[in-house]
Nucleic acid binder design. Structure first.
Lengths: 357, 357
DNA sequence: CTGTTAGCGCGTTCAC
DNA sequence: GTGAACGCGCTAACAG
């Protein structure tokens, strides 16, 4: 096992000397530029291997002296999580500046395919790379493919368009997130009661509040959640999902009705935002902490409800991690560096009252 | 709200010109070096503010042209988690090299204060910065203070020595980790049964397996765990902790005895490594998945036991995050940059079968 | 195909 | 207290 990491400070000059070529030739080989004979290239490669040379990023960065324009396309109209994403981008200003990257946040109606596609079509020429909160829709897929075709680096953020040609997706596996929520609900409710005849008694009803049936991430979460409940907790009865468009007021009304219609309600899972409306409806009915709630994303509202026990757990993704990953990936894509997959994996977090950050 | 980030590429030259001083003077002010009159400094500061200047990291890095030697002191003798830490350090080799940092991994007996203190005393002169897995012991505290006194940057890794003068701790809040484990156990076991007289029935016994009573991180986890159980799940009976020194074989024997002694055992919490021994003892007794297990850290063994249901959940810290944080923090400390606290916070992760990375 | 050379933006001697 | 000038390691334009 080698416990010495990076011993001798090597330079391209050392490599060139060792290979018996000029600086420029060594540089061409290192960066895979054309105009070098096969055997010269081989000599250089050997020298690189033998000496264990790696270019000094800072020097390359400086010499390249080229600047980049990134666009980040986010849904307009302040959902808390997206505001956090935007804030984190601003917080990374120094990181971007240190790499000569100008970032523009473009707000648009991400939920309307035509609007989003139109916005995307305005990007080429003005930007070198784009991160976007995607909609999984044929028109958007085509728009993304056009950008890639035009030579831009494209990554999807938070919500993916898997069949497009985007180079990377920065976000969580939403099926896994839904499954995680399902396991939390199933386990927190405890094992089923066994009736007199030795039969499993029904464990009560589980309500599902979702933003919209047509958003891919919400649909995936619902799918994962349903999978786990059906497989592992068949005694729980899933109510048909209700759609509140991530709006607290709508969610409040939906939960009021749910409480009226389903006296056997034991848990609620919210696949999206607007959890605060659920908390309000439960509080009104005097059922806060009596009905198990699991939701998504850490916001001031969900934090409060976690602390007061209204919500038992949150399944979350870290907007800070996502923004930093997006920045690294786009930078790597435009500068032609490799991306370290392991480092860019975005985790599905479970947050209880006790491990709140 | 400003959606434009980093518009004009500014240089120190621009600032100097705007302030009506030379490059060198502007540089002195920016880097807080002496030899500049108060009013000249003010002019420069104003120009910096007005133009919104930030030095280009790459150029600074290059010009500084100084290299660093970091030591990372880890426990020798392959505990899986520490091997992961070491592997992640090697995986960061390029990052270190790009910053002219030579890293040496020093293996020693971290659990013996004298050995560790002796090892630490060998470091000054040979290294600019140290990260160490600390022992919270007076002799180690003194050794750390000596290093800091001697001008080295020192951070503790995974296990802290809070009362020493180390500049930073890279690791999780172990009390929070223990509390999280406690909440998982309490909730997963379900609410207490209510007896005929309306009284809460005892919920069974909870076993606690720990590495050693004298390791601070284990002790803190036990403390947090006990806190939550006592406060929120008083119907559960905590058995006295048993010490297996993180060794699977010892843990196996301890759990065998625990099973024999406590027929009412319903859950086991392992504060440290060697969880595989617990799984073995349960499997022998045909009790795997019947007794709830919660442990720490994701390793091939714990991953397997999570998948097969022997363990219900793991509380974990990400060695990759920790190594990267350690690298950033030490680099910031030696180069005198600020550290972004929010980014360096290491999260207490909850891992279920469904959100395994 | 290959080599020479002038910067990239900042730190750091030196003079003044 | 201040400024001029060189160099960090690499890239890119140009010359051969």
């Amino acid at each position: 096992m080698n416990n010495q990491i990076n011993d001798a400070p090597l330079t391209l000059r050392d490599v060139a000397a060792a290979a018996g070529v000029s600086l420029a030739t060594a540089d061409r080989v290192i960066n895979g530029r054309p105009g070098v004979s096969a055997k010269t290239a081989l000599k250089v490669h050997e020298a690189v291997q033998r000496l264990g040379f790696r270019p000094l990023a800072a020097a390359a960065e400086l010499a390249r002296s080229r600047s980049w324009r990134f666009a980040v396309v986010l849904p307009g109209g302040g959902n808390r999580f997206m505001l956090d994403i935007a804030d984190n981008i601003r917080a990374q200003a120094d990181w971007f500046r240190a790499r000569r990257i100008a970032v523009e946040i473009v707000e648009t109606d991400v939920f309307d395919a035509d609007t989003l596609a139109a916005e995307l079509s305005m990007l080429p020429g003005r930007f070198d790379a784009v991160a976007l909160v995607a909609l999984d829709h044929p028109r958007i897929r085509a728009a993304i493919d056009d950008l890639v075709e035009g030579g831009m680096a494209v990554v999807t953020l938070v919500s993916d368009a898997p069949s497009s040609r985007r180079q990377h997706y920065v976000g969580i596996d939403n099926i896994a997130a839904g499954r995680t929520a399902g396991s939390l609900v199933g386990r927190f409710l405890g094992p089923p009661r066994i009736g007199e005849a030795g039969k499993v008694e029904p464990g009560g009803a589980v309500g599902i509040v979702t933003g919209s049936g047509s958003l891919r991430d919400h649909a995936e979460r619902r799918f994962g959640f349903g999978q786990v409940l059906a497989e592992e907790y068949p005694h729980l009865i899933r109510l048909p999902p209700v759609e509140g468009r991530d709006d607290p007021d709508r969610n409040r009304d939906l939960v009021r009705r749910m409480l009226a219609d389903s006296p056997d309600l034991v848990a609620i899972y919210n696949t999206g935002e607007g959890s605060v409306g659920i908390g309000e409806a439960l509080a009104e009915a005097g059922l806060a902490r009596k009905i198990l709630c699991v939701g998504h994303e850490l916001t001031p509202a969900t934090r409060r409800m976690l602390l007061d026990g209204t919500f038992a757990a949150l399944v979350a993704q870290d907007p800070g991690h996502e923004v930093r990953s997006m920045a690294r990936v786009l930078h790597a894509l435009v500068t032609g560096q490799e991306i370290v997959a392991a480092q860019e994996h975005i985790r599905v977090q479970v947050i209880l009252r006790d491990n709140l950050p």
